[in-house]
Amino acid sequence: MENKDRTLGEGIARQELQLIFIIDNSGSMEGEKIGAVNNAIRDVMSMMPEVQEDTADATIKISALKFSDEAKWVYSEPQTVNEFKWKDLKSEGGTNLSSAYDELAKWLCKKEKGGKMPDIGGVAPILILMTDGMPTSYDWENHLAILKHKGWFKVALKYALAIGIDTDEAMDVLRKFTGNPETVLKVYTAEALRKVIKVIAVTASKVKSNSASAGYGGALGASNNDVAKNEIAEKLDDIQDVEW
């Protein structure tokens, strides 16, 4: 049996920041909507290596969860910005938001409990939900209630993009996800959708990865999410066909 002393300094890694896209690819997203989402994510990914290079404080990891009749992760593990290659989504089936919330709840557990979040430390993730209508799963509120108990969900920076949604009932679904009406955005055109996704994903990643270590820790309830939200709000002012 090996019987040597270990050297100090091995096994140290940077903090991990996860950017998670939750994408409705049900039949109603067909055509321009899903095309705009695909283009936007490809755009974001082309910029992320630069964002990663600019920060020494955290490693950015990307994940995508698509949901129609069932929810499914595009990659089974969070990917670094260089590993993540976007494959265009096709739209078909219903809008099973319950299944998406279940998958997200499993993902947002510590690794030792079967999830994908670090057991110790880590940075509050960024969640971006995109959908164009009411869920077809009637019990989505029960599944959201379970998700809301997860510590990582509570601290996450949450945005929801309502793609061409006009009814209050459908907007309420998204407000309940973010818990904040100011982070639910109505997007009316493909071009606006592309710009909005880019602004949220890139700005939030920059702010949060650059303040991942010592700048913003504190008692429960405090975080750097507010800084990211303020910067995003300023940039969204310049985009037309968006309402929040």
């Binding site: 510590k110 979040m117 430390g121 880590g122 940075v123 509050a124 997860k150 510590g151 990582w152 509570k154 601290v155 991942a212 913003y216 820790g217 504190g218 008692a219 429960l220 309830g221 405090a222 975080s223």
Partner: peptide
């Protein structure tokens, strides 16, 4: 499980 990320309980 509440004390994830940089958030923590505090003496204050």
């Amino acid at each position: 499980d509440e004390t994830v990320a940089n958030l923590t309980y505090s003496m204050s």
